[in-house]
Design a protein around this nucleic acid. Structure first.
Length: 274
DNA sequence: AAATGAACCTGTTTGC
DNA sequence: TGCAAACAGGTTCATT
């Protein structure tokens, strides 16, 4: 569910809601079985800590604490963070509550439990194990046409799988991979190593454009994703191929096709994408 | 090493 | 109508 724009939307909302600077008054853990165990005894030590800053790296959300620790959150497929008013009853899949000193409750909900919530202390170089092998941010200068061209030489996997690999570039998931490739005019099945340098440049620009526009729209809500206030992401209306099998391509009118790559639904226009 | 597929979960939609 | 299968935005592990 949540790709980079959704996580950035959540991070921005938490900043706007002034969560940084608040103290955590109380912690409630209701379910310990996530991607990694959510250890209640450890999380409860967060009581009394202050949130210093909210950051995002790839699809991870980082709450930096005044203890020097970082609460690392990943929303998996169905994770959401909500800021509820005091005394709101928890839902069936609300696994973790952080009650702030102003009474609001930051709630991590995740029905499928592919998400992650762990406390980490960065090493002397400021590094966190889970983040160590991640590729450059797509909106940074490090992600360039030259970079993509260089790392894709000799690679035979479909370019869609390649750009969804978090060791190549982070933040691009199943929706934005299809949308970016449509924008770049590149067929998702094309082996990554066959992309020319100009086409790599075009793809990099397309990824940047799509992700930026999605962030500006507050992300994409298909069914699960919601902002911290429960609002829906408006980028769903801007999708040109994702979830549109059989419907006319907005550019050329030919029917959008669906195929499966790496076990994931993939949408493209057979006319516009070569 | 790189590519592929299955597994981890629950909820919702689809198809017979 | 009812039930089973298919499917869902991510990551990780095992197998070729």
């Amino acid at each position: 569910m949540p790709e980079l724009p959704e996580v950035e939307t959540v991070a921005a909302a938490l900043r706007r809601a002034r969560v940084a600077g608040k103290k955590i008054r109380r912690v409630v853990v209701r379910c310990e079985k996530l991607r990694q165990p959510l250890v209640a005894a450890e999380m409860e030590k967060l009581a009394g800590r202050k949130v210093d800053a909210i950051r995002r790296r790839a699809k991870y959300l980082l709450l930096e604490l005044d203890s020097g620790q970082v609460l690392l959150l990943h929303l998996g497929m169905t994770g959401t963070l909500r800021l509820d008013e005091q005394d709101t009853a928890p839902g069936r899949h609300d696994h973790l509550d952080l009650e702030l000193d102003d009474g609001r409750i930051l709630r991590f909900r995740d029905p499928r439990r592919f998400g992650l919530a762990v406390l980490r202390r960065p090493d002397e170089n400021g590094r966190i194990a889970e983040l160590a092998a991640l590729a450059p941010e797509p909106l940074s200068d490090a992600f360039s046409g030259d970079y993509l061209h260089r790392i894709s030489r000799g690679r035979k996997s479909p370019v869609k799988n390649f750009i969804m690999d978090q060791r190549r570039v982070v933040g691009v998931g199943n929706i934005y991979a299809s949308e970016s490739l449509f924008r770049a005019g590149i067929r998702p099945t094309l082996p990554a190593g066959k992309l020319s340098r100009p086409r790599c440049q075009r793809l990099v620009e397309a990824i940047r454009d799509i992700l930026s526009a999605a962030i500006a729209a507050g992300g994409t809500t298909i069914s699960d994703f919601h902002g911290v206030d429960g609002s829906e992401g408006a980028f769903v209306r801007a999708l040109k191929v994702y979830g549109r099998e059989g419907k006319p391509c907005p550019e050329c009118g030919r029917p959008i096709r669906k195929t499966v790559l790496g076990g994931r639904s993939t949408f493209y226009c057979p006319g516009c994408q070569r």
